[in-house]
């Protein structure tokens, strides 16, 4: 099978866009001192295999992209995807170990953005981002299904807590409750349990009918457009319903 063509123009644009003062300084002054090695649990968990040390991960990805001015092969990009998605969780611990405070995770996230633009983000993350963009939640649950599930859980809780309601899109409520789409799809009893707690606590709360999924898998994929969209759905719901605070599950 022939390898897909690399969109070099797009990579060049991203690289130029990303090159602010931080990346410029960080990429230049990294002294390759290896203080960062011991901060990385990938490195420690692989019996100190040097290929997992943070500075090397940057050297193999973002640094390489700048040195080659974005002119890389598909094979090289695939290797970078293995590193950016597979060998780093972007936990930022290495930036606490670095004498210059170089934020490796931010650079890895930038690499993910570039790879995502080439369609190289892991399939699961790409699908979730697509769903979030199209339906407002990562699991493509329809508004009808969401409302149904809430009604069902309301009925289920009736015996234990008479009078319990699961309000949806109640304008002027005090609190907006948002959750993980997984709970709606696979663990609906989580909704009932959260509703019981909120009811027992006497909270004036509501779900929104759109923007109730607070997960942001697009962020992990490196898809900035959907990442912003997903966060904005929750933000817009809070504005629309004039709530004072947002509670998230998990």
């Amino acid at each position: 099978m022939a390898e897909p063509a690399v969109n070099v123009k797009l990579i060049k644009e991203r690289l130029a866009f990303l090159k602010g003062g931080r990346f410029k300084a960080w990429l230049e002054i990294c002294a390759h001192c290896a203080y960062c090695s011991d901060s990385c649990f990938f490195y420690l968990a692989h019996d100190k295999d040097p290929k997992y040390m943070p500075a090397y991960k940057v050297k193999q990805t973002l640094d390489k992209l700048y040195k080659k001015k974005g002119e890389v092969t598909w094979e090289e990009l695939e290797k970078m995807a293995d590193i950016a998605y597979g060998d780093c969780t972007a936990c930022r611990r290495c930036s606490l170990y670095c004498p210059f405070g170089i934020d490796v995770a931010v650079m890895i996230a930038a690499v993910r953005g570039i790879l995502c633009g080439q369609g190289l983000a892991p399939k699961g993350l790409q699908d979730a981002a697509k769903h979030h963009w199209e339906t407002g939640n990562q699991m493509a649950i329809t508004e009808e299904d969401f409302v149904e599930t809430c009604k069902w859980m309301e009925e289920e809780s009736e015996e234990e807590m008479p009078g319990l309601k699961i309000p949806i899109e109640k304008k002027g409520a005090e609190t907006l409750y948002v959750l993980n789409a997984r709970e709606v799809k696979f663990y609906p009893q989580d909704i009932a349990e959260a509703a019981m707690i909120l009811y027992a606590a006497g909270e004036d709360w509501t779900f929104p009918d759109l923007g109730w999924d607070m997960t942001n898998l697009a962020m992990f994929a490196g898809n900035a457009q959907v990442m912003a969209h997903s966060a904005k759905l929750v933000y817009d719901a809070a504005k629309r319903l004039e709530v004072k605070k947002i509670i998230t599950s998990e």
């Binding site: 300084a25 002054i29 930036s95 210059f100």
Partner: peptide
């Protein structure tokens, strides 16, 4: 880095 050290450290 003799100068940039102070800038990058201030940032982080």
């Amino acid at each position: 880095h003799i100068f940039l050290f102070f800038m990058t450290r201030a940032h982080i």
